[in-house]
Design a binder for these strands. Structure first.
Lengths: 290, 290
DNA sequence: AGATCCATCTCGCCG
DNA sequence: CGGCGAGGTGGATCT
């Protein structure tokens, strides 16, 4: 009984299933021809068409067409779903407050309704996030530059929290902003805001700013240069070739350069050694489609 | 025949349906107990659980749990779906290149598979976007300030395209950055970048910057003040009460203030007249569920 | 393909 | 609840 399905149901029969499913916390999918109207942070209307509608027990609703990753219309978790039959349409309404938002789906034809029993307790483990990059930096601060000493993460400033705060070999304060992927102008601006804020805390100490990311766009590099900020290329996860055992002095892409007079404009963009052909799946499968 | 469903199918039967559906461009939903592994821009793995998987004919794949608006795992449009049966699992693999990414879903149990015929050709009409705000400003430049004369939209600068570029009553260049909703520090930084870029084009002309949005956070307001930039409160869509006919001098929230010596620190945050009780739906419906 | 920016961004965290 | 920033952001647009 984990999935209950009605094919081409009457609106009334579909309504009954929706009542039950909304009541006991099941997930619901509807497929059929419908229109969608939304009013809230913005306003939208969508003419008739065939769509897949998903109602989750946490109050989420999604309206998907046959294209794109994002739903054409939706409502976030925490909304209240209601269904009704009126004017010959099965209507699903989802509402919330703060902000006040309403989504209305009106089906003129329902091809299928299904209610699912869902029990999912398994957390996603993800690698390659900014936090992984931070761990990498803390594990081997020389990746930022020789002699860098981290002192705090998420250090609060007037402009917001700094990813990694520390000192360089000369004892100057260093603000490090981390990005898990190639950075553009906004990251440069963000780093600048942090450096300015810290600079007011430590006047005349020559606060430095370092953007750490896999790579940087040209314009962002210019912005950094204009503002006397540096860039260092580091991947969020260590390449396979790298020696990542305890005593890591072989990781030294950034070395030498005693950094004597502030703000060197950053080592160059890494060569990005690219994808090694590690296709570990021998596709001698039983059956294969498309 | 718009929806073909198999209940608790064998993996092999499910595979046949997937083959057909992938072949003739139908949308597919699968529900069952599965694990998910991803490798690409990052890497992730998800242990076994009941999930709803949606495969779109454009190459999108979505893995949804019973919570949240976003899929736990996904693959964007343009990917290639393949299905197979191996080691007692129904496997769905979705791949693409640039960047190289692979998603694997392995079902140990399939409760339901459905293939849908989808024909959707109806465009979403949405109001309240930044573009609406821009039209509003161009329609009535006095919303920015008395005497403002727009000269270009999306005007290119060394720092990127400026939303609205023009002149104030004194002939000084004005950079306007538009935001459809309340702005934080990043918008202030963005405006600053543009102003600096334009300032290099027009040295000694006292280029001004105006951030136009419904409201602003405290920190962003400080940043604007530090940089000599202004803020003007404007909603992306006109309030119902407003007179939006041709001769608009009733809209004048921003008036007077000849702006003689640059950079007034912005009129205050609008009062946000809030939601009027325009509940046009009398809910004397036939049937209503939860 | 890359760069830039908007988005009903969503999401989590923290005050 | 609002502010703030990350995200496998997605998506559009332009070069």
């Amino acid at each position: 009984m984990t999935a209950t399905t009605l094919h081409r149901p009457t609106h009334r029969d579909a309504l009954y299933l929706l009542e039950e499913a909304f009541g006991d916390g099941r997930m619901v999918t509807l497929f059929g021809r419908c229109t969608v109207d939304y009013d809230g942070r913005a306003t939208s209307s969508l003419g008739p068409g065939d769509r897949l509608v998903v109602c989750k027990p946490d109050g989420t609703i999604l309206v998907h067409t046959d294209e794109k990753r994002k739903p054409v219309n939706w409502q976030p978790p925490g909304c209240t779903h209601r269904a009704s039959v009126r004017d010959g349409h099965l209507r699903v309404r989802s509402e919330r407050s703060t902000p006040t938002e309403r989504l209305d789906v009106a089906f003129e034809r329902i091809d299928q309704v299904t209610a699912y029993e869902v029990t999912d307790r398994s957390d996603l483990r993800l690698q390659g996030s900014e936090e992984d990059l931070r761990r990498r930096i803390l594990d081997d601060p020389a990746l930022v530059e020789e002699g860098f000493v981290p002192q705090a993460t998420e250090r609060e400033t007037a402009a917001g929290p700094v990813d990694v705060f520390g000192e360089d070999a000369a004892g100057r304060p260093v603000v490090v902003e981390l990005k898990r992927r190639r950075v553009g102008p906004s990251a440069a601006g963000q780093l600048q805001r942090y450096v300015e804020a810290v600079d007011e805390e430590f006047p005349d100490e020559g606060v430095r700013g370092v953007l750490v990311a896999p790579s940087v766009t040209d314009r962002a590099r210019e912005l950094l240069a204009e503002r006397g900020l540096s860039f260092v290329a580091v991947e969020p996860v260590a390449d396979e070739g790298d020696d990542e055992s305890g005593d890591g002095d072989s990781v030294a892409k950034a070395e030498g350069d005693g950094g004597d007079d502030g703000a060197d404009a950053g080592r160059d963009d890494g060569p990005d050694a690219g994808d090694d052909a590690a296709d570990e799946s021998d596709d001698a499968a039983d059956d294969t489609a498309e």
